[in-house]
Design a protein around this nucleic acid. Sequence first.
DNA 1: TCCGTGATATGAAACGTTTCATTTCCTTGC
DNA 2: GCAAGGAAATGAAACGTTTCATATCACGGA
Lengths: 324, 324
Amino acid sequence: MSRPAGIKAVAERALVSVGTVSNVLNRPDQVAAPTRARVEAAMRELGFVRNSSAGSLRAGRSHALGLVVLDIGNPFFTDVARGVEQAAAEQGYAVLLCNSDGSPARQATHLRFLEEHRVDGVLLTPADSDLDRVRELEARGTSVVLVDEAAQPDRCSAAVDDIRGGQLVGEHLLSRGRERVAYVTGPDSIRQCADRGRGLEDTGLHVRRVEIDALTGAAGYAAARRVTRTDAVFCANDVVALGVLRALLEQGVRVPDDVALVGYDDIEFAATAAVPLTSIRQPALQLGRTAALMLLDEISAPAEHAHQQVLFTPELVTRRSTGG
Amino acid sequence: MSRPAGIKAVAERALVSVGTVSNVLNRPDQVAAPTRARVEAAMRELGFVRNSSAGSLRAGRSHALGLVVLDIGNPFFTDVARGVEQAAAEQGYAVLLCNSDGSPARQATHLRFLEEHRVDGVLLTPADSDLDRVRELEARGTSVVLVDEAAQPDRCSAAVDDIRGGQLVGEHLLSRGRERVAYVTGPDSIRQCADRGRGLEDTGLHVRRVEIDALTGAAGYAAARRVTRTDAVFCANDVVALGVLRALLEQGVRVPDDVALVGYDDIEFAATAAVPLTSIRQPALQLGRTAALMLLDEISAPAEHAHQQVLFTPELVTRRSTGG
DNA sequence: TCCGTGATATGAAACGTTTCATTTCCTTGC
DNA sequence: GCAAGGAAATGAAACGTTTCATATCACGGA
C-alpha cells in the first residue's frame, strides 16, 4: 500500500510547481482561474487528500481545539460540546472531544494527547482542583479556557454560578416547608459539587451529605439506601437524581409527599421522569459557545486579548418532585 | 512565543544524538540505563512534549482511530464510544470522536477530517445508506469498520439485529393484545429505523408509520399529536419514546391502559421514566469494543486479517409501559 | 594477539506541507 | 520604445520526527 498522492504528485500532473498547488489550497484567489481549475482537476483525478500532519508541522498551528469534558454520559456536557463545536466550526476550527470521566489521570492523559497534537487551544472542565498541569500547558504556549469553572483573572472562563444554584434549591425547599435535606454528591474535589452544597447550606437548611464516588445513576441508586430521616433530597446532578428516584420509588417512598427530590442541570430526561424532576437549568449550549469564542479570540489575537470570566445565572425549574 | 523544545534541543542538553532521544521515546530498552536517565532528565527540564504531527508524518501512521457516531446525545452511542475507547486504549491507540448528528454532510466532513489526519482506521455508524465515500476512503488505504450496521463480506462490521428487535416488540405487543400500532420513526434512509419497522410488520400487526425528521425527544413530543386511534406506540429509540410519553401524559392518555409504549436501546433513563419504559436492550459497550478490536486487528495485520460480520442479538426488557 | 559478536550510539535522509524571496511575464503610461 | 509595477508562478528551505545503515566499543574465545 503506497502512500497516497501528495501535493507533489498533483503538481506534476497539473504541470505547475508545488507552491502553486499549496496556493490553490490556501489562497485560491491568488491563483489564476485556469491554473486553479487544472490543479483542482488533478486533485480529483488523483484522489488527493491533504496531509494535515505535514501542514501543521510546518505551519505551527493545527486549526483544531481540544475539549475535555467531565462526563460525556451526562447530557449537560454533550450540550456544552455542541455549543463548542458550533462556534469552532463557524471559524473553521475542528474540535477534538475527550472525556475525562472525572478522573484526574484521564484528564492528564488527554491534555498530553492534545498538546502532542499541537491543538491551538484547549477547553477544559477540570476534573481536578489542582491546575498545575494547566499552567504548564499555558507556559508552553497553549491557551486554555476553563468551562463550567470560574478562573482567576489570568485566564478566561465561562461558568454558571453554582453557589447561586444551590441557594435556589435551598430557598425553594424552605418555601415548601422542607427542613432536613440530604445532599447526594460527589467528592468535594469536584468544585461543582462543593459549590452547590455550599449554596444549599447558605440558606440555613439542615444538610446531611451523602457522598458517592461517581456521578452516575447507578451510584445514586445505591446511595438512596443511605438517605434516611429527611424530607428532601438534593442531588448534585439529574443523572444521579434519577437513580435516586428509582430507588425511592422501589422502596415505596412517595415523592414528593414523603420526600421532595431536586436535581441539577435540567436535562431533557428530568421532565419525563416517573415524578417529573425539579431541577436547575443551566445554559449549556451557550456556555460552550461562549467559552469557545473566548478561546478563539485569544488564539487569533493573543496581543489584544483580554481575559474574561463570564458567569451565567442558573434558573430554578419546579416540577412535581417538589410538589409542582 | 518561540516553538517548544524539540527532540534536537533535548539531544543537545543530554549530550546525545537525536537518534538516541528518539530511541528513548520509542524503544527505551535499546538505550543504556544511564543514557536514558540523562535524556529523560533533559526532557523534564526542557518541558519537552513530542510533536505527533512530525511523528506521524514521518512514520506514516498516527496511532489514532476515528469514530463517527450518529448521535452523541443518545446515551446508546456514548456507551458505544466508551467501548471503543477502552479497546483502543488497551492497545495504545487514541480515538477521535465525531458526531454526525445523522447528517450525511456532517458525516462527510468528519470523514474528510479524519482522513486528513491520517487516522489508522475509522469506525463509522453511517448516516447515509450510500457508502461510496467509504469505499473511496478504503481505496486510499484507510480501513473502515461499520458499527451498528451490517456490512457486506468486504468489510468488518458489528451490529445488532434490528429486524429481530422489531419482531420482539411486535410479538410482545401481540401477546399483550395490542393490534393497532403507530411506529414513530425517522426516515427510512436510517437503516436502524427501517429494519426495526420491518421486524415489527413481520409479526402481522397493523402498523401506521409516523415519520419525524430527527430522533430527538422534542420531535417525539411533537409527533405525539399525530398518533391517533392506536392501542400501542413503538418508537425508534428511547429518546423519542420519552418525548412521546411526556406528550401522551400531558394529553391525559393513560399508559399503558389506553396506549402501550415501547422504546428501543434501553437507555438508563428508560427505567426511571414516568411510566417505566418497555424497551429493547442492546449490548452497546460490547458493540463498540468488538468493532474496535476488529479494526485494530485489520490495522496490525492487514494480510492475515479476515473480514467478519458480527451480529448481536437484542433483548426485550418489559416494564410498566406495556403492562409490566 | 586478534577476531567476532553484541550492545549502544550516531547522523543523515525522508516524510508532505507552508512560506517567502525571487523570477517571469504582461500591462500601462509616458 | 521603455521603465515601472502588478499579477502569477516558482523553487528551495524549513518544520520535528523516525528509521536505518553505519560506527564505536568492550569483551570473550581461539
